[in-house]
Design a protein around this nucleic acid. Structure first.
Length: 572
DNA sequence: ATGGTGAGTGCAGTGTTCTC
DNA sequence: GAGAACACTGCACTCACCAT
């Protein structure tokens, strides 16, 4: 499994912005005036030169570059010395000029007031001049040397498209060697006939190569950003030749579709092979995109972050030992059990499944339902434990990726207490993460507001005695009792309320004292926000109530209209 | 707006298999 | 991934009541 699965879009953006756009180059070209770059003589009386317009165009000039464009013989010698050192570090005898230029550390080469770009430019000029200076025999010897090392070097870029051409290319050298008298054109014709007489199996081999070449050419010519292949593509790649051989009646397109269909029906254990191939290929895809971006700096491309889909990812994790999520509820288990029955699924239309299941579920006795629910609970707990163990065994980075991509539970959600803790540690308080975290409802450690209402105290004390009544009835009864209560008796609750208020104020003052200036400001902000929310809520509530009332009126009006025969429908 | 609480409601999300 | 039909869960919220 590749360590880095996801490449952030921002990094690819950097690649884009890291390139100098062609327009910028043109700007520089315009700025460099001919008078500035005139050939001059230095104090050393040595001949200097100005870069040609083409050289300026080829180079990425900065404002600073323009000022230091005069090279003397001394400078050239210095550059040569620096280049020698740099080349000695890298050159293993096989590097080409282009390859060397890419690998070289130009920061070590640059010197004095000459920038990297200017040094590069001068090195280009030196190479160009040396090439022109070469004699024909030197050139011939160099070419011969290349040919000895790689006989196909000078023809490698010729693209051959068809399977037949690929066959001819492969066999031509041997054929000519064996038949030195045969003219080239005739040799090609004879090889073409030979190809025609090949077995289908051997032909398929060349067809496969041809498809790959065509694919490569179309890819480069269409200049589209590479896309990550899917597991099914790897399956097609490996199976297509044999499918086409076994089913000659199918066109290539049909054969591909046939492969797709086959892949869908493949067991998960077999799909894993192709999913893994896909994952292994992802770094190559990233490289392709980076290369594409460097060639097309003007394009804004977002690199795919998911190279396999959710299901495939789940298959992969499942295969790697991630426990499979159990069915949700007792009813789900019941439904699942019925669905397992092939007779049931074959004899009923899909849309009827759950109608039938729900009917059967209704007939299940309560005790049995309870059993299903217990089983569900057991499975859930077992899953939680297993999942927790598995997640803990993974490195943190991988765990995060896993929970993000497959929507697997987080470690927190697997904790035994299912209810979320509402109070936060004061140390965690300043960590802004989620929107709701920015302004929570309460401040950690804040004293709870005490009951300042005498009636509320009365309710609090007496409501437990009315356990047999409905919630709404309880307050009805207590309201009645409160009204009948003597004023002297009420004083008790009034004093309690006052006491509570005083206690609350005291606790609040202590709490505020314990806070730092920053925390206090934060707390006050929360209190302010709380009262704002409440007032807006009460406003919306009153609007809803008034709207409801209006609705009721409208409904009543509408009903009366219908009754009176004035509604639109009735009038027709 | 506040205290209390249970019942009820609405919504989002989960699960099942299969097709398009 | 949506949609087909259904059950279920969990959460947030409302409602009922009253006096201060």
């Amino acid at each position: 499994m590749p360590k880095k699965h996801v490449v952030e879009a921002s990094s690819s953006q950097e690649i884009v912005s890291g390139q100098r756009s062609p327009s910028k180059k043109r700007k520089h070209k315009e700025v460099v005036s001919s008078t500035e770059l005139d050939t001059t003589f230095s104090q050393d009386d040595e001949i200097t030169f100005k870069p040609s317009q083409t050289e300026i165009n080829d180079t990425q000039w900065t404002e600073a570059d323009k000022e230091i464009h005069i090279w003397t013989v001394k400078h050239i010698n210095q550059l040569m010395n620096n280049m020698e050192e740099a080349i000695m570090k890298l050159d293993d005898g096989t590097r080409t000029c282009t390859g060397l230029e890419k690998a070289i550390n130009w920061d070590e080469v640059k010197f004095g007031r000459f920038s990297v770009y200017e040094c590069k430019m001068m090195w280009h000029r030196i190479q160009k001049k040396v090439k022109r200076h070469r004699t024909v025999s030197e050139f011939y010897n160099a070419a011969k040397q290349v040919l000895d090392q790689d006989p196909k070097f000078f023809i490698r870029n010729q693209k051959r498209y068809t399977a037949e051409e690929l066959y001819v290319e492969k066999k031509l050298d041997d054929f000519i060697e064996a038949n030195p008298e045969t003219p080239m054109q005739q040799a090609i014709e004879e090889l073409k006939v030979k190809y025609e007489n090949l077995s289908d199996k051997r032909k398929a081999k060349y067809e496969e190569k041809s498809t790959a070449v065509k694919k490569k050419i179309t890819k480069s010519s269409s200049n589209k950003c590479p896309k990550p292949p899917q597991p099914v593509d790897f399956y097609i790649e490996s199976k297509l030749p044999s499918v086409m051989e076994k089913k000659p009646e199918l066109s290539e397109f049909q054969a591909i579709n046939y492969c797709r269909h086959k892949y869908k029906k493949l067991k998960e254990s077999k799909q894993i092979k192709y999913i893994n191939k896909c994952i292994d290929h992802f770094p190559s895809y990233q490289e392709e995109v980076i290369e594409y971006l460097s060639e097309n700096p003007e394009k804004e491309v977002k690199m795919a972050s998911n190279y396999i889909n959710k299901n495939e990812m789940a298959t992969k994790w499942k295969h790697d030992g991630i426990p499979h999520k159990p069915p949700g509820t007792g009813y789900s288990i019941f439904a699942q059990n019925i669905m397992k029955d092939e007779e049931f699924t074959q004899n009923n239309p899909v849309t009827e499944y759950f109608k039938i299941i729900s009917e059967r579920w209704k007939e299940v006795p309560l005790e049995e339902k309870q059993k299903y629910n217990e089983e569900s609970h057991k499975l859930k707990e077992a899953y939680k434990t297993e999942m927790k163990e598995k997640l803990l065994s993974l490195p943190e980075e991988e765990r995060e990726l896993l929970t993000k991509t497959v929507n697997l539970p987080t470690l927190e959600s697997l904790e035994p207490s299912t209810k979320k803790k509402k109070t936060k540690l004061i140390t965690d308080f300043w960590k802004p993460k989620l929107k709701e975290d920015i302004l929570p409802a309460t401040f950690p450690g804040e004293p709870k507001h005490k009951i300042v209402n005498s009636y509320a105290h009365f309710v609090q004390e007496h409501i437990p005695t009315l356990s047999g009544h409905r919630g709404s009835d309880k307050l009805k009864i207590l309201g009645e009792r409160w009204r009948q209560m003597a004023e002297e008796e009420k004083v008790k609750y009034l004093e309690k309320a006052k006491e509570c208020e005083a206690q609350y104020q005291e606790e609040l003052a202590k709490f505020k004292e314990s806070l730092s200036k920053k925390d206090l400001a934060r707390y006050e902000e929360i209190v302010k926000n709380r009262s704002k929310k409440k007032s807006s809520k009460s406003k919306t509530n009153s609007t809803i109530t008034s709207n409801k009332k209006a609705d009721v009126h409208e409904e009543a009006d509408g009903a009366s209209e219908v009754e009176n025969g004035t509604g639109d429908e009735d009038s027709d």
